[in-house]
Design a binder for these strands. Structure first.
Lengths: 163, 163
DNA sequence: CACGGACCGTTGAAAATGTCAACTATTCAT
DNA sequence: ATGAATAGTTGACATTTTCAACGGTCCGTG
């Protein structure tokens, strides 16, 4: 709510609202793109902070998750799914592989492609990291009922996977 | 499409789904953080593409929006609201100011601070850009009813503005 | 079978973003 | 009046993004 609207009017100056609270009600506060950017920034920061204790970031966590899930993705599929350039996937996997959390295996069906699988160690670390990630997610959505939580996931999926 | 799925099948492995479609049902497909990252990436790309015709990006559009909204934010408030480093806000405003879309005015209540206001030209450009932005948003959420659309915005606001 | 075009992963460079410390001018509490 | 804190700015540095090029492999066609 704009405090200025309570009073006669700003001449040049209006009540300076404290902090950024006044901006939440601006047009941007109704802009879905902006809300996504900001929600994403906060969520990512929280996730990265929680994953740091496992030596992971959101990126490497995602790669490890897909490897541990026995989806056996190729690097190209990884890149597409995570919306990263293939060269970034190389660096991500290089790191995980050096730590023996993950292995590249030549896809027998296409020797150009590498398929990614998690080691036992990788699966174990992922399980622990997943607990942290879930705790963060619940913390962020503490103000929301489980049904709303699921509804949010559903709607985000629509945006994340159009078509 | 991987032809391998046409044939009987290897051994340990599960059906190799075509492309990245199989990955959508992995654990990550239920991870809110991941969905946010991906939805954000797609939405941002669409928004930037649409805003490019006005010489804006999501960032500069947001700054212009707040300036045009007569919220009279200081640069620090802008930085906090947009979750940017204050130094990035400087560059953003420098650009908009050079294009005479926006002006810095010393805050009479605190001469250290600059307050941002849009020029008439800035307001006119913002109005046009906003039309593009809205069209994009509607396009992305074409599969969703207006009520669900509003519910999504509401839930995202909870994430974007905790407390 | 051999060719050409497309695709996979990899490398390295260039551009854009993000992060941080230092500095000036100003405010504010005491 | 003085010192601590804050707003904006600058410049350095790290990280991330984007792109073009290259060797190896696949596939359809002749």
């Amino acid at each position: 709510m704009k405090l200025a609207t309570i009073f006669g009017m700003p001449r040049p100056e209006k009540l300076r609202s404290a902090g950024t609270d006044g901006l939440r009600d601006s047009v941007l506060g109704r802009d879905l793109s902006f809300l996504l950017v900001r929600a994403n920034a906060l969520t990512l920061a929280a996730a990265n902070a929680a994953l740091a204790e496992h030596g992971l970031k959101a990126r490497s966590y995602s790669v490890l998750a897909l490897a541990a899930d026995d989806a056996r993705p190729t690097q190209r599929e990884l890149a597409e799914f995570l919306r990263l350039d293939p060269s970034q996937v190389v660096a991500l996997i290089d790191d995980l592989e050096k730590r023996r959390l993950v292995e590249r295996r030549i896809d027998p069906a296409d020797r150009r492609a590498n398929v990614l699988i998690a080691t036992d160690e990788g699966r174990a670390l992922f399980a622990r990291a997943q607990d942290s990630a879930r705790a963060v997610e619940l913390g962020l959505l503490a103000a929301v009922t489980p049904e709303e939580h699921e509804r949010l996931a559903h709607l985000l999926r629509l945006l994340a996977f159009p078509g």
